[in-house]
Amino acid sequence: MPRHIRQLFSACIATLTVSVLMSGCAWLPPQACLPPSRIMVSAEMIFGRNIGDRPGISESAFANFVAREITPRFPDGLTVIDGDGQWRDSARNVDVRERAKVVLITFADDAQKHADLVAIAESYKRQFSQQSVLTKVGNVCVSF
């Protein structure tokens, strides 16, 4: 094999090796759980409690929202945690600090449950004049 072909071949192999190494987690197998755990979906929803620049969503109003909107969609259980948060209002170029509620929900993967998360966020935004509800979803290993 001519020398320039060998050099080209070596360069291609080096490039391929670097590409594979830099791809990181893309080459890992799907998440596996150690028994007795199983893969489920974990959702974390963060609900701000200000209305405009003022505190406005009371404990009872939030509890009623959970009872009416979240519990019927996720009757197997959830956790509500009090929080203090902040976010950047880019329109006004200011940091906004507010009380928050964090709702943790774990469920078997199901398209309807994912749609329920969206419906909950949309209902909260409409009912309490909110710009957004942060929703984070991912797979986790769970055992009960």
Rank of each mutant, 00 (worst) to 15 (best):
M1T: 12
R3C: 07
Q7N: 07
L8D: 06
F9I: 07
F9E: 09
S10K: 09
S10D: 10
S10I: 10
A11I: 14
A11G: 15
I13G: 04
I13P: 05
I13T: 11
A14I: 10
A14P: 01
A14N: 04
T15Q: 07
L16E: 09
T17V: 15
T17N: 08
V18G: 05
S19N: 05
L21V: 15
L21E: 07
M22I: 13
M22T: 15
G24E: 09
G24S: 10
C25R: 09
A26R: 13
P30R: 13
P30T: 14
P36E: 08
P36M: 09
S37N: 11
S37K: 11
R38F: 08
R38C: 06
I39P: 07
V41Y: 00
S42L: 08
S42R: 15
E44A: 08
E44H: 12
E44G: 08
M45Y: 02
I46R: 08
G48A: 14
G48M: 05
G48S: 10
I51E: 07
G52A: 07
I57W: 01
E59M: 08
S60M: 09
S60A: 10
F62I: 04
A63S: 14
N64T: 15
N64L: 13
N64P: 00
F65W: 04
F65Y: 02
F65I: 02
V66A: 06
A67T: 10
A67K: 11
A67R: 13
E69W: 00
P72Q: 04
P72W: 01
R73F: 00
P75K: 06
P75M: 01
P75C: 03
P75R: 02
D76I: 04
G77S: 01
G77T: 03
I81N: 03
I81P: 00
I81F: 03
I81H: 01
D84I: 06
G85H: 00
G85W: 01
G85P: 02
Q86C: 05
Q86F: 01
W87N: 02
R88G: 00
S90R: 12
A91M: 07
A91D: 03
R92K: 14
R92T: 05
V94H: 08
R97Q: 09
K101H: 10
V102G: 03
V103L: 05
V103C: 12
V103N: 03
V103I: 05
T106W: 07
T106C: 12
A108I: 13
A108S: 13
D110C: 10
H114S: 13
A115T: 11
D116F: 11
V118G: 06
A119L: 13
A119E: 12
Y124F: 13
K125H: 03
K125T: 01
R126A: 14
Q127N: 06
F128D: 05
F128W: 03
Q130W: 00
Q130Y: 05
Q130A: 00
S132K: 04
G138A: 02
V140C: 04
C141A: 07
F144T: 08
